[in-house]
Amino acid sequence: METIAQRQVDALLDKYGESHRNPANELIHVICIPAIIFSFLGLLWSLHPLAALAITIISLIYYLRLSVSFALGMVLMSGFMLWMLSLLPQAHVLSISLAVFVVSWIGQFIGHKIEGKKPSFFDDLRFLLIGPLFVLAILYRRMHIAY
């Protein structure tokens, strides 16, 4: 079963990588994707912290089906982000999250303008969940962590 899941994650990352080959676009994604995740969780948090937690758990189930190693990385990343949100004054979470969300998406589209290719999620919405794994894959390769 692990072999099948590994091939699926590799295929998704390969397809995602097709529109993320330019080093400037890759760097923008490494910065903006975590910011988008943080701000999206913040938008949910502003509705109710349990909404952010529920979406996190649902996404972690998807990641676990793709790769245990990636799921563990996402647990650490999303856990850290949820902890950071818990430290912010509730009255400011929405405005901060909205600002980060907008600026980060602008960055993403600038990256794709540089790349000359449209964002992957225009073809398949699953790539909204694969983007964070793309960033983790870059980190994992540098740290020689298998995924």
Rank of each mutant, 00 (worst) to 15 (best):
L41H: 01
L41I: 01
G42R: 02
L43S: 12
L43E: 09
L43A: 14
L43G: 05
L44Y: 03
L47W: 15
H48R: 08
H48I: 01
P49I: 04
L50K: 07
A51F: 14
A51W: 12
A52T: 03
L53Q: 08
A54N: 05
I55P: 09
T56H: 01
I57C: 10
I57N: 04
I58A: 15
S59T: 13
L60N: 09
L64C: 10
L64M: 13
L64K: 14
R65H: 11
S67R: 08
S69A: 15
F70L: 06
F70T: 03
L72H: 06
L72F: 12
M74F: 03
M74H: 06
V75G: 02
V75F: 03
L76C: 09
L76N: 07
L76P: 00
M77Q: 07
S78Y: 09
G79Q: 04
G79S: 04
G79N: 02
F80N: 00
M81V: 05
M81L: 07
L82T: 00
L88E: 01
L88R: 01
Q90N: 13
A91F: 08
A91L: 09
V93W: 01
V93G: 01
L94D: 11
I96W: 11
I96K: 02
S97R: 02
A99L: 14
A99Y: 10
A99E: 09
F101G: 05
F101Q: 11
F101H: 13
V103M: 08
V103Y: 04
I106A: 08
I106Y: 03
Q108K: 09
Q108A: 05
Q108E: 13
F109Y: 14
F109V: 07
F109C: 12
G111L: 10
G111M: 03
G116H: 11
G116Y: 03
G116Q: 06
K118H: 14
S120I: 05
F121M: 01
F121L: 00
D123E: 15
D123S: 14
D124K: 12
R126K: 15
R126E: 15
F127R: 04
L128W: 05
L129A: 11
I130Q: 08
